[in-house]
Design a protein around this nucleic acid. Structure first.
Length: 277
DNA sequence: TCCTCCCTGTTC
DNA sequence: GAACAGGGAGGA
């Protein structure tokens, strides 16, 4: 499930493959996957050139010249791969972008594959971002978030702390894996109301969010089932999970069997001994 | 603020 | 053949 580290890794591995390249054509194999921008397709392609690939929260953004932006949300099973020209779609291919040949690069095709079809792409003009509610409501980037701002935004909230970490309007990019891992490292029960935590505990939580995200980016993300980067390679951070997916196993710190529960409608694993307030 | 639904491949 | 995985929209 691509969260911030996985989307960051996709951006880093994809940009060298497509930056500077002109998109000749877009093929929409599943209409709903192109969530916005059907009316812009014929104006943008052929001709739009990719000038940058970047990330905001879990959103992957292509800047196109002149005057367009493409946003992708991979959700659970979305993938972006560059294939050789002539590559035929597979059963999960939803969008294809034909890349024109460049000086030293032959023609190619960028596939957006998505088995569960939750992912989407939006082709927009930059000013359209203002009218995309999900984008305008996105919370701050965790890696550059100041402790005082994080504490301020959650300290009086009554909801479970994990629910707030998953709320993209509070903090952008955290999903189920990193929420559980950050709570464990901080000794915070995921179900604890945010308002029950001290400023010191919240500060520590943000530090551990940054640590777990940074470590995962260094490992090229976590590959549970479907996730691969744009080179088709798996990440390695799944080998460093301390709680996610380890219900019933021994806590790495105290040996107590890890417990499984549901918070914010999501499977949640925690150590009943280490995570207490 | 919380619950349900969307969707399909994998696991039990 | 049912349960499960889960990000985010939308409704209670």
């Amino acid at each position: 499930m691509p969260e911030l580290p996985e989307v960051e890794t996709v951006a880093r591995t994809l940009e060298p493959q497509i930056k500077g390249r002109v998109i000749d054509a877009a093929h929409v194999l599943l209409p709903k996957t192109l969530e916005a921008g059907k009316d812009l397709l014929s104006a943008a392609f052929p001709g739009a050139r990719v000038t940058a690939v970047r990330r905001r929260g879990k959103v992957l953004l292509f800047d196109l010249e002149p005057g367009y932006v493409m946003a992708f949300h991979l959700k659970m099973t979305g993938r972006l791969f560059v294939h050789k020209a002539g590559e035929e779609p597979n059963k999960h291919t939803r969008l294809i972008f034909d890349l024109a040949p460049e000086a030293e690069k032959p023609a190619a095709r960028l596939f957006f594959d998505d088995a569960r079809t939750f992912g989407y792409c939006r082709l927009m003009q930059p000013e359209d971002l203002t009218f995309w509610p999900f984008w305008t409501k996105l919370g701050p980037e965790p890696l550059s978030l100041a402790q005082k701002d994080f504490i301020q935004s959650v300290k009086n909230r009554k909801g479970a702390i994990k629910a707030l970490l998953l709320d993209q309007t509070v903090i952008a990019g955290i999903g189920n894996i990193y929420a559980d891992e950050a709570c464990f490292r901080s000794g915070v029960p995921p179900s604890a109301p945010a308002s029950s935590l001290t400023g010191k505990q919240l500060g520590k939580l943000l530090e551990n969010i940054k640590a777990v995200l940074t470590e995962s980016i260094e490992e090229c993300g976590s590959s549970i089932r479907d996730y691969r980067d744009a080179n088709g390679d798996a990440g390695a951070f799944q080998n460093r999970f301390r709680v996610y997916g380890r219900a019933g196993e021994a806590c790495v710190d105290c040996g107590t069997p890890l417990q499984k529960t549901v918070v914010a409608g999501r499977a949640t694993v925690f150590c009943p001994r280490c995570q207490r307030i």
